[in-house]
Structures are given as structure tokens and as C-alpha cells.
């Protein structure tokens, strides 16, 4: 077990180094990305440029620059923005992380519960009208782009119907930290949670239904019937248990992706200052330190999520032990 953990850790370090080198190289290969030019301002003299280069260490060879950046990011944690001098990267990321985690955790709870209900109901009522309706709604859910859905939600809850009894409680766009107000935190996130969950409810509901229907043809389900179990016991205890195995690995990947910054679109549209939004800003400004930090944070999350999934696997599937 310890060996496995050490191996995992080694893999993670390898992934992080590779990604950071890749990001670094791509950045310096991008035309118009020269940070010195941006820092020095428009129309700076070559002498000023050189001075700026020197003061930011940008005149050193690339490998040295890379090592320095990693040192500032991880060891001294005082890496600053190339665009807004003085703005430190690490605190900014740490501030954004709770926002993203709040968003993704809440949405995940909603989508997992709702997808279980949709999938199990559809499989139980397979080939009936209920099944077809649920699958149709799921397909619609999967097909709606999340940024568009978020815009529509904003339009309805913030503008057109904001003054009706139904949506008058919805606060203005933005994030309220949990430490400031629990109720405010909840209210600020309910709409983004729901919007983000819709796609995944559709996706997971459909996958779960097809897994369940497939499982219902397995020999062990016939055994369960021959034992005299009820249909409810057969679906929930036997078919669902086996179907969850694939669902867990899907969930791990999706969760890791979203928590690692993949919720960028909805964060931007819903005005949530999370990691995705931070990445978005950094990309717009071509601000290497922020891009680097956001990408590495996302990579860590995805690798960790994968490890957790593998360990969960051993818990829910005895064959994988």
C-alpha cells in the first residue's frame, strides 16, 4: 500500500513538472507575449526594456527562469504578477479555491442525487412512457451549453422575473463567503449549482439507466430473482451496486476537472471569483505567473481526484482489490 502511494506521488510530480514545463515553453513561444514589453508600457525605450528585463530576471536563460519561477511559486510563495506588479499569485489562488470548491461540491451533491433518481426510475420503468420522458429530458439537459443556461438563468432571476415572488430572494451576482453568512453563501450559489448540475444530471442519468438495464440481464440478477427478492431489492441492492462502479470513475474525473478550474464558463457568467475565473483573467492578460499557478492547481486536483477514484474503486468493487 505504501509502495502504491509513493508511486502515485511520483506520478503526480512527473505530471506537474511536465505540465509546468509545457506551459512555460508555450508561453515564451507565443508571439506578443513578451512580459517585459507589457511591464515597461507602450513606447518604452530599449534601455527601459532592458532594465525591466533585468529587474524581473527575464534576461536569464529560460531554464534558469523556469527554476526561479518554480522557486517563487512553491518555496518562497511570493511570485508576483507580470501584469499588475506587486499582486502576489499564491494568496490570490488560495482566495479563489473556496469559491470553486463551494460551487462544485454543491453542484455535485445535486447532480449525484438527481441522477440516481432519474437513472433508477427510468431503469425501473424501462420501455415505458416515464422512461422515455426521463431520457428525453436528460438528453435536453446534456445538450444545453452551461454558459448559455447560466445566461438564461441570470436573465430570468436577475432581470425579467426578479421582482416576482419567485425570484425576489435571489441576490445580485457574486459570491458571499461561508464565513460571512451561511444563508448568503447558499443563496448566492443555488442558481449556479443548479445550472452546473443540469448537464451532469442528464449525462449521469442516461449512463446509469443504461448500466442498470444492462445489469438487469446479468446472471446474478436472475439468481436474485430466484432467491425471491423483490424488484426494489433487486434493483437497489444488486443492479445499482454494480452499476455504481462505472459511475464512480466518471464522477471522479468530472469532479476533478471542474474543481481544477473546468467550471470556468459558469464562474465567469455567474460572476463567481473562483479558480476558473482567475484562469480566464490570466489568459486574457497573458499573465504567465497566474496561468502557471492555475494550471498547476488544476493538474494537482485532477491527479488527486484520480487517486481517490482508484481507492474508492477498491472499496466498491472487491474484484479490484
Amino acid at each position: 500500500m505504501i509502495l502504491v502511494m509513493v508511486r502515485r506521488l511520483g506520478e503526480m510530480v512527473f505530471v506537474l513538472v511536465s505540465i509546468s514545463v509545457l506551459v512555460f515553453l508555450i508561453f515564451f513561444a507565443t508571439p506578443g507575449a513578451d512580459p517585459a514589453a507589457r511591464l515597461a508600457g507602450r513606447g518604452a525605450t530599449p534601455a527601459t526594456l532592458a532594465a525591466v528585463r533585468h529587474s524581473f530576471g527575464l534576461d536569464k536563460p529560460l531554464p534558469v527562469q523556469y527554476v526561479l519561477m518554480m522557486k517563487h511559486l512553491f518555496v518562497t510563495q511570493d511570485l508576483t504578477s507580470f501584469v499588475n506588479p506587486g499582486e502576489k499569485v499564491v494568496p490570490a489562488v488560495l482566495q479563489a479555491v473556496p469559491v470553486t470548491l463551494s460551487l462544485v461540491f454543491g453542484a455535485a451533491i445535486i447532480w449525484v442525487i438527481a441522477a440516481l433518481v432519474v437513472g433508477v426510475l427510468a431503469a425501473w420503468a424501462r420501455d415505458t412512457v416515464l422512461d422515455r420522458l426521463l431520457m428525453l429530458f436528460s438528453l435536453i439537459g446534456v445538450s444545453m451549453p452551461v454558459f448559455w443556461l447560466a445566461e438564461v438563468a441570470n436573465l430570468i432571476t436577475q432581470a425579467r422575473y426578479h421582482d416576482t415572488w419567485l425570484f425576489s430572494w435571489v441576490p445580485a451576482l457574486g459570491y458571499v463567503p461561508l464565513s460571512v453568512s451561511v444563508v448568503g453563501w447558499f443563496k448566492s450559489l443555488v442558481i449556479p449549482w443548479t445550472v452546473l448540475a443540469v448537464t451532469y444530471i442528464g449525462l449521469y442519468g442516461r449512463v446509469l439507466r443504461s448500466n442498470l438495464v444492462e445489469a438487469m440481464n446479468e446472471d446474478y440478477i436472475r439468481t436474485a430473482r430466484a432467491k425471491g427478492l423483490s424488484e426494489r431489492q433487486i434493483i437497489l441492492r444488486h443492479a445499482l451496486r454494480m452499476s455504481l462502479i462505472t459511475l464512480v470513475s466518471m464522477f471522479g474525473l468530472d469532479f476533478g476537472l471542474l474543481a481544477g478550474g473546468g467550471a470556468l464558463l459558469i464562474e465567469v457568467v455567474s460572476g463567481l471569483p473562483g479558480v476558473g475565473e482567475l484562469t480566464y483573467q490570466a489568459l486574457q492578460n497573458l499573465d504567465l505567473p497566474f496561468i502557471m499557478a492555475a494550471v498547476l492547481y488544476g493538474a494537482v486536483f485532477i491527479v488527486v481526484a484520480n487517486t481517490v477514484v482508484d481507492m474508492l474503486y477498491a472499496v466498491i468493487d472487491p474484484r479490484a482489490r
Binding site: R222, A226, H238
Partner: peptide, 29 residues
């Protein structure tokens, strides 16, 4: 079913649910 009339099947490899111990599956019945 499983009470007065019980049934066993051809392939014992696939006839038991992989996720539970065999003891638990007997207990369930």
C-alpha cells in the same frame, strides 16, 4: 421462489453478485 422452490444455474462464475461476500448473499435469502 427461494423458499419452497429454489433454483441453481449453470455458470456459478456469473450467478453470484460480485460486490457482496457469499455469506452475505446467503443471509440475504
Amino acid at each position: 421462489r427461494g423458499g419452497a422452490i429454489a433454483m441453481i444455474f449453470q455458470d456459478p462464475m456469473t450467478a453470484l453478485t460480485p460486490a457482496y461476500t457469499v455469506g452475505a448473499q446467503i443471509v440475504e435469502q
